[in-house]
């Protein structure tokens, strides 16, 4: 089985994808002056959704390239691709 088979689940999600995507990107851009990396909880709050529902939207946005993961190794965060100092530094190659 392909490792991404799990994403078939997102086709049946309760939140409307396009609507949620716009809401999340706008929400994150509004906050982007103070920070560029966000905890999953921050995303769920912007989406005003339960974590499990929010996760379906977030998973698909990762696959579509609208969000990217950041990890310290012990903690994971999310950001909009290309935003933030670290993103600039790491995409130098």
């Amino acid at each position: 089985m392909h490792p991404l088979h799990i994403f078939s689940e997102v086709l049946q999600m309760a939140l409307d994808y396009e609507e949620s995507k716009t809401k999340l990107i706008e929400g994150l851009k509004k906050k982007s002056k103070s920070k560029t990396k966000f905890y999953f909880n921050d995303l769920a709050k912007i989406l005003e959704a339960k974590p499990r529902e929010a996760k379906k939207v977030v998973n698909r946005m990762i696959i579509d390239g609208h969000l990217e993961y950041w990890s310290s190794g012990s903690t994971s965060m999310y950001g909009i691709p290309g935003m933030g100092k670290q993103a600039a530094a790491e995409h130098e190659d």
Binding site: P3, L4, I62, I63, W70, S71, S72, G73, E90
Partner: peptide, 19 residues
């Protein structure tokens, strides 16, 4: 440096970026 934006496509874990 602390952490990073690396991973394999679709995975948020399993790779720990070190620069």
């Amino acid at each position: 440096k602390h952490g990073g934006i690396v991973g394999v496509f679709g995975y948020g874990g399993g790779v720990i970026g070190r620069y």
